[in-house]
Structure formats: structure tokens, C-alpha cells
């Protein structure tokens, strides 16, 4: 149990020292200007689908229409393709 405590504290202090949340945020990319279609990614061990949905909400103040939800286990890849409401 002591080992676990030491491990957790070490990890947390290390993570704090290495923290750079702004630089770690993943992207939203416009893939069609005419139809206002975007692709949000939320890959990896830390991010998950809620991050993709949050990005869709932030990108489209008037709401959005979900076009595709792609997930691949090859690298923890998650992609949300959405179209902003006008």
C-alpha cells in the first residue's frame, strides 16, 4: 500500500511538472467550408468522446448535426464529423 501511495504521488507530481493542457488539446478541423462541416478528434488514453462532443458544441453555437462517429482501435483513434446548424 505504501508503494502504491508513493507511486501515485510520484506520478501526480511528475504530471504537474509536465502539465501543458493547452498544448495537449486536440483539434477541430474544417473539412468543407460550403457545408460548414468539421472533424473533431479525441484520440488516446486521456481524451474520450465527451471531448469530441464538447468541441462540436463550442464550434457550433447554434447546434450541430452529427454526420459520422468513427472509432479505430489501432491507436485509440476517435473522430466526430459534424455539420453546424445555420
Amino acid at each position: 500500500m505504501k508503494l502504491l501511495l508513493v507511486l501515485v504521488l510520484s506520478v501526480l507530481s511528475g504530471c504537474y511538472a509536465l502539465s501543458n493542457p493547452q498544448g495537449a488539446a486536440q483539434s477541430v478541423k474544417m473539412i468543407d467550408l460550403k457545408t460548414q462541416t468539421y472533424k473533431a478528434t479525441c484520440n488516446g488514453a486521456v481524451e474520450d468522446w465527451p471531448n469530441c462532443y464538447d468541441r462540436a458544441k463550442q464550434t457550433c453555437p447554434n447546434g450541430y448535426n452529427l454526420k459520422e462517429r468513427n472509432q479505430s482501435p489501432v491507436g485509440g483513434k476517435r473522430e466526430l464529423v459534424f455539420q453546424c446548424n445555420k
Binding site: L12, G14, C15, L18, N20, A24, Q26, S27, A45, V46
Partner: peptide, 18 residues
């Protein structure tokens, strides 16, 4: 299982598990 998953960059995660 307990784990900590840290985003060092948007493409690189550090992982610790017990």
C-alpha cells in the same frame, strides 16, 4: 486496477498503472 494517464502533448500520453 488504478491508473494515471497524462497528456504530455496532444499525441503523446504517459501512463502509470497498478
Amino acid at each position: 486496477i488504478v491508473g494515471a494517464y497524462h497528456p504530455l502533448t496532444k499525441s503523446l500520453n504517459l501512463v502509470a498503472e497498478y
